Simulated assay, not measured.
Amino acid sequence: MSVLAPDPAARVASFNPVAKLLATLPLTVTLLLSIDPVSAGVTLAGVLVLMPFAGLPARMLWLRAWPLLLAAVIASAATVLYGRPSGQTYAQWGLVHISDGSLQLALAILLRVLAISLPAIVLLSTTDPTDLADGLSQLLRLPSRFVLGALAGLRLVGLLVDDWRELSLARRARGVADSGRIRRFLGQAFALFVLAIRRGTKLATAMEARGFGAPGARSWARPSRLRPRDAVLVAIAVVVAAASITIAVAVGSWTFVWTL
Rank of each mutant, 00 (worst) to 15 (best):
V161Q: 14
L151C: 01
F185H: 06
L151W: 11
Q138M: 07
G149Y: 08
V157G: 06
R155F: 02
A170K: 13
A170T: 14
L159N: 04
R165F: 00
A177H: 12
S137W: 04
S137L: 00
A152F: 04
R174P: 03
R145F: 06
A133M: 14
L156D: 13
G175K: 05
G149N: 09
A173K: 01
L136D: 01
L142D: 06
V176R: 10
S168L: 08
L140A: 12
L160F: 13
F146P: 00
G175I: 04
L142K: 02
A150T: 15
A173R: 00
S168C: 00
S144R: 15
R165Y: 00
L136T: 02
L186Y: 07
R183M: 07
F185K: 02
R174F: 05
S144H: 13
G175V: 01
G175D: 03
L159K: 01
A177V: 02
S168T: 10
P143S: 10
W164T: 08
L140E: 08
V176M: 13
A133D: 11
A133L: 14
D178S: 11
S168Y: 05
A150G: 09
A133F: 14
D162N: 15
E166K: 11
V157Q: 02
R174D: 02
L148A: 03
S137H: 09
S137C: 07
L140M: 10
V157P: 05
R174L: 09
G158I: 06
F146H: 12
D162W: 13
A152H: 02
R174V: 01
V157W: 07
R145H: 11
A152V: 01
I182P: 00
F146C: 01
L151Y: 06
A173N: 01
A173H: 03
L167E: 08
R141W: 07
L148V: 07
G175W: 02
R172K: 10
L132P: 12
P143V: 09
S179W: 07
A173Y: 01
F185M: 11
L148Q: 10
L148S: 06
L160G: 15
S137N: 04
A177T: 08
W164G: 10
F185W: 12
I182T: 09
S179I: 02
L159F: 10
A177I: 00
L151N: 04
Q138G: 04
R184G: 12
L142P: 01
G135A: 10
R183E: 07
L139V: 04
L169H: 11
R165A: 12
V161R: 13
L156K: 01
R145M: 09
G180H: 03
L169P: 03
